[in-house]
């Protein structure tokens, strides 16, 4: 059998490379009985369409950035709360706490998660070093979703909507002067062309998820199902390891290209953690009982 798999990011991205590794592994483990054609860079479906396309069997399998569906249910965007789970170990625990709830949520849509891979931790890009959070006052901060917009407000900055593709131009012209994103994205957009300082705060690790349509999965032979699940487990492990490597490499690349990568001062860290606590509280209100179960499970680890 041959499956088509829409993915949002281009081939050079480590997430896509991991997807290719996964599909190779599926082919190997299933003895060639299941082949998956990867259509990267949103060439088949655009990111917001991928989940719906898989749900209605327009494609049997797909990949998506989980927080894109945060408006539908807050459980999707728990990995977008800054400083709730900083660093890979915490991010992994958060995923373990999130997994049963998300699995249940997706089952209602006839979907099943296969694995996730965390992006490198997000840090703060600014033009000049910051003594504390007060220095962000009035600064134009790039917001691209509800979480980053709220974060900007709590930091005293002005949230400014700029789409990914317009980031370089928006910074060059002074339309925005700060953003929170991963080192990897900073390297992708060549942040050193228009920014000077990167604080590697590892504030949060958003995740990409690879998931299948449950009916398509059930229609596979048991042997192939097992192969798919095993490949997913291996790809998850490999993906998280790769992500750590990318995180280390990209911060180095930023520095090599002339960006300052200073330690955040204690005052700055305190300020950011305060923002994180407020946002966790607000998220809990939105997410209801499921949210409380998730956070309790995470904190209990």
């Amino acid at each position: 059998e041959t499956w088509d798999m829409p993915t949002p990011y281009p081939d050079g991205n480590f997430q896509t490379k991991n997807v290719y590794w996964f599909v190779d592994r599926v082919k190997e483990l299933s003895g060639g009985e299941l082949e998956i054609n990867v259509h990267s860079a949103a060439s088949l479906f655009k990111m917001p369409e991928i989940k719906r396309a898989v749900r209605s069997q327009q494609a049997p399998i797909g990949e998506v950035l989980m927080s894109v569906h945060g408006n539908e249910n807050a459980l999707w965007e728990v990995d977008g709360i800054p400083f709730l789970a900083a660093g890979y170990d915490n991010a992994w625990n958060l995923w373990q706490a999130q997994k049963p709830l998300i699995t249940e949520l997706m089952a209602e849509e006839g979907l099943m998660p296969l694995y996730t891979v965390a992006w490198p931790g997000q840090g703060l890009y600014v033009q000049e070093e910051l003594s504390d959070l007060g220095a962000m006052e009035g600064m134009k901060f790039r917001a691209y979703n509800a979480a980053t917009s709220r974060m900007a407000e709590l930091m005293g900055a002005i949230p400014t909507t700029v789409q990914y593709a317009e980031v370089p131009q928006a910074f060059s012209t002074g339309l925005v002067s700060a953003m929170l994103t991963s080192g990897a994205t900073g390297v992708d957009v060549k942040a050193w062309d228009f920014l000077n300082v990167y604080y590697d705060t590892k504030a949060m690790h958003p995740k990409n998820m690879v998931f299948v349509n449950k009916r398509a999965f059930d229609a596979l032979d048991e042997k192939v199902q097992k192969a798919l699940l095993q490949a997913a487990e291996e790809a998850e492990k490999r993906g998280w390891d790769e992500s750590r490597k990318v995180a280390a490499d990209t911060v180095k690349t930023l520095a090599d290209n002339g960006m300052k990568v200073p330690e955040a001062s204690d005052a700055l860290v305190e300020g950011l953690k305060g923002v994180g606590e407020t946002m966790t509280g607000e998220w809990l209100e939105r997410a209801g009982d499921g949210g409380k179960t998730l956070i309790d499970a995470y904190r209990g680890m």
């Binding site: 719906r52 894109v68 917001a143 917009s149």
Partner: peptide, 15 residues
């Protein structure tokens, strides 16, 4: 009809 059935929302600040 499918978007209605599953209550699909857009991403961004307002769903």
């Amino acid at each position: 009809a499918e978007s209605w059935r599953y209550g699909d929302l857009s991403d961004g600040l307002v769903g």
